[in-house]
Amino acid sequence: MWGLFFLALTVVATSSAQQQYYNRYDNVNADSIVQNERVLLAYYKCVMDKGPCTKDGRNFKRVLPETLSTACGRCSPKQKAIVRTLLLGIRAKSEPRFNELLDKYDPDRSNRDDLYKFLVTGN
């Protein structure tokens, strides 16, 4: 399930870089992904350089900076909903890990306000 999450984020960020959208993962069940803490922790460790990465984890790690720095700015509405659900799920499971993730990928906090606004409003 988390593999689909990270594939969805990969598609979103790759689409952003190409300025076009792909909808292959638009029907990912983000809620069920958030419920699997074992997989969530494995991906967290991957993106934080604290554990091994799967192919999906490496792809997610590659696109995460752009996704966070733009607050999913180039995402389609469905993709925004998926990314928002997943980020809020990570935050709900562990606020310290969520903050550590943000600090790693937005160390100067240049986009923190926009990211929090996105998490609250979905826009």
Rank of each mutant, 00 (worst) to 15 (best):
S32A: 13
Y21G: 10
V12P: 01
A13C: 10
A42D: 14
V39D: 14
Q19K: 15
C46H: 10
Y44M: 07
A30E: 01
S15K: 04
A13V: 09
C46A: 06
K45I: 07
N36H: 04
Q19W: 02
D26M: 08
S15N: 10
V12Y: 00
Q18S: 11
M48G: 09
A8I: 06
Q19F: 06
E37L: 14
R38W: 10
Y43K: 00
Q19T: 04
R38E: 15
Y21P: 02
N36T: 05
T10E: 13
Y44S: 08
R24P: 02
S32Q: 13
L9D: 05
S32R: 15
V11M: 04
A13I: 05
Q35C: 02
K45M: 05
R24Q: 15
S16C: 11
R24D: 14
N27C: 09
T10K: 01
Y21E: 12
A8D: 01
L40V: 02
V39C: 08
L9V: 09
Q19E: 09
D31T: 12
N36Q: 04
Q19G: 04
K45E: 13
I33Q: 07
K45F: 11
V11T: 11
Q20E: 02
A42I: 03
Y25W: 12
T10F: 02
A13Y: 00
M48K: 10
N27F: 14
N27E: 07
A30G: 00
A30Q: 01
N23G: 15
S15Y: 00
V28L: 13
A8C: 10
A13E: 09
A8L: 06
V34P: 02
K45P: 03
Q35P: 03
V47N: 00
Q19L: 07
D31Q: 14
N36S: 05
S15T: 09
Y25D: 07
A17S: 11
D26R: 13
C46S: 08
S16P: 01
R24I: 15
T14E: 12
D31A: 15
V28W: 04
S15F: 01
Q35M: 02
A13K: 14
A17V: 09
R24T: 12
T14A: 10
V11L: 08
K45R: 12
A13S: 15
Q18E: 03
Y21W: 03
S16A: 14
V11A: 15
Y43I: 01
Y22T: 07
V12C: 09
L40E: 07
N36Y: 02
Q35S: 14
A13H: 00
N27S: 15
A17K: 13
Y25G: 06
A17E: 11
Y21C: 05
Q35R: 14
Q20M: 04
M48P: 11
N36C: 01
L40Y: 09
